[in-house]
Write a protein that binds this DNA or RNA. Structure first.
Lengths: 354, 354
DNA sequence: TTTCGCCGGTAAACCGCTTAACTGAGGCGT
DNA sequence: ACGCCTCAGTTAAGCGGTTTACCGGCGAAA
């Protein structure tokens, strides 16, 4: 492979000049520029990114830290990752995936190697130890997600409030008054501080209260199996329910299956709306799931952009909250007209978090 | 961050000695080793991978080239990628994802940068231009997939013959005699040379012939929608069919949905078996799909291993073909006893590729 | 005792590029 | 005509390691 020295010799200039031209860091006359460019073309020169990285202390590589042990790498994650990779490449950066634990120890190890200029943090917890690690190491980073304190950390995230509000309004306007949420399982120690679950549940409680709706929340992990069980339990415990919102992607699929298995027609008997999902997954059920589409492509891109801005010393990207948008399918319909139960305009069933 | 020079000074040795110890490339007495190791511990030293890369001409980074435009990055791909990333990290390598076109031009560009030591190629075509690019660049690589000619290229792949044979035997032994395959759509120019589809279809034709079965093959892209349509068409054209094998993951989901929509009970009227799938996806249908599980984790790991062997100059890993293993679900049952049609012990319907 | 080879260790030349400091040739005001 | 500034280029010192050539000392062989 041709080196910069070769190019410089061939063009009859010093290698510094070549470097200046390549990086556009110092003016070069049209004549020399032409000579250098020709030399590069003739030699098929391509600058060595490793040498560049060493000399400039910028590798132009960023990492996405993904806690693969704690969180499944599913379709949504794939969207985040690929869109981030593309955004990075557009700015002449490489993206590597770091499947590291969310306690930060592996992350610290990797940061020490000096391979990356910055890190995009996925699956952020409300109090995330990885952030301390990054700050200690002095490595720039951006969050896809948010911590507890809305300190000035650069981040982008789903707008859970808007998403939940839109979702509730949608089913409300269809006529539903007996809703329930199949949420994340915050009692699982791995997730008790997992932002999306906490925020969605909080938002739901708020919105439900605002709409004067009962608050029925069933915890559930993000697996099809868990979704089935949760749905079956839900309709058993709260037979008055006419519409279910499901937070998790795979749980939503399971919920539909579970309802059908239990003999309920969807959406005839019960409507289902999935809160965070990608279209490919939604298309998997029959009928196709009505869902709020996870803004994975946007967030992957915005998160990367936020990080790159930092790295380039540009105007920082203000934190952005992107709502999941409604993607109508066929699992939400008007509730079947029911005879109101005598003596109770609102069912007794009502759960509240302690 | 502490550098090697710092460590050497503190330990009272030359930096070369530190390097030798670190790389285990020259013997070091126990005493000096101890001193150096203590110095490293005290300083929290971590060797800079970029400097190392430049000096040693080995970056310890490998890329997975994935034609993201042509192929969707789905659950199976995610499995390949994450298992490859883990295998790489185990050997102290980093894995980057390169979503490049499958024509090789972007790949050439990236290779020129000298960022990676080697490449794992995904979604290999029977005649894949990227291979020429890699060979020209002199970059070591391994294939997950195979080209047409079984030249000595290091590769791992799905054992389509065994997979199809196992699948057919399974439904055959359940009593089915009227099978059909919902295959890939080889008429689509993007896929006419796509290994898995070509090989599966070939294998199916062979196996079906060996079992004396009619050969019914319906082309279909890998989307839920296409799967629905294909299944509906299939049962319309070939009502005698009692069992369907579906090559593609999402198409399989669609097929089940399509059959149900058309009023067929699965598996009561028709059995469905998916040929390449991950369990998460299979759990999404109701009843749960019977499927052959894509050996994604194994292949991702083996492919990476094959590449790393090359890079380390170790005994090359012999090409491996891994079959997808049967993962029983609930969509394959014995065929319902039917009155044989008068005057035809075998239906006329039979398609063959030109 | 001399010599040879081995062994732990050192010095220094890179690896290919970036960048701060410097040079030298105009152009310009006075 | 002189000094001064500007501007395109050059020189050379790193960046933090790897690796080759070399060196002194010591034990074993002669």
């Amino acid at each position: 492979m041709a080196t910069m020295r070769d190019v410089a010799e061939r063009a009859g200039v010093s290698i510094a000049t070549v470097s200046f031209l390549l990086n556009d860091t110092k003016p070069v006359t049209a004549a020399t520029r032409a000579r250098i460019e020709q030399a590069m073309a003739e030699l098929g020169y391509r600058r060595n990114v490793v040498a560049r990285a060493l000399a400039s202390r910028r590798t132009h590589i960023i990492a996405m830290a993904y806690p693969a042990l704690e969180h499944r790498f599913g379709m949504s994650t794939a969207e985040f990752f690929t869109s981030a990779a593309e955004a990075a490449r557009k700015e002449d950066y490489h993206l590597v995936l770091w499947p590291v634990g969310n306690d930060g120890v592996e992350l610290r190890e990797l940061l020490g190697q000096g391979l990356v200029d910055g890190v995009v943090l996925m699956e952020v917890q409300l109090d995330d130890p990885r952030i301390d690690v990054l700050q200690e190491a002095g490595t720039p980073f951006a969050l896809i997600g948010r911590t507890d304190e809305l300190d000035g950390l650069p981040h982008v995230d789903i707008d859970f409030d808007a998403t939940v509000e839109d979702a509730v309004r949608y089913v409300y306007e269809k006529g539903h008054r007996e809703l329930a949420l199949i949420s994340g399982d915050l009692s699982d120690p791995r997730f008790h501080s997992y932002g999306p679950w906490v925020r969605t549940e909080d938002a739901y409680r708020r919105v439900a209260a605002a709409y004067g709706l009962p608050v029925v929340v069933v915890p559930c992990l993000d697996t099809t199996q868990a979704g089935k069980v949760a749905a079956e339990r839900l309709v058993a415990d709260h037979p008055e329910t006419t519409a279910i919102l499901v937070l998790n992607e795979y749980a939503a699929l399971g919920a539909v299956a579970g309802l059908k298995r239990a003999g309920h027609d969807v959406p005839g008997d019960i409507s289902v709306l999935s809160l965070l999902m990608v279209p490919e997954t939604a298309a998997m059920t029959d009928p196709e799931l009505t869902m709020m589409r996870t803004p994975g492509p946007e967030l992957g891109q915005l998160g990367t952009e936020a990080l790159l801005r930092e790295l380039e010393g540009a105007e920082p990207l203000p934190p952005q909250l992107v709502p999941a948008k409604l993607n109508p399918g066929a699992t939400v319909a008007a509730p079947r007209a029911r005879r109101p139960k005598a003596g109770a305009d609102r069912p007794a069933a009502r759960k509240a978090r302690p």
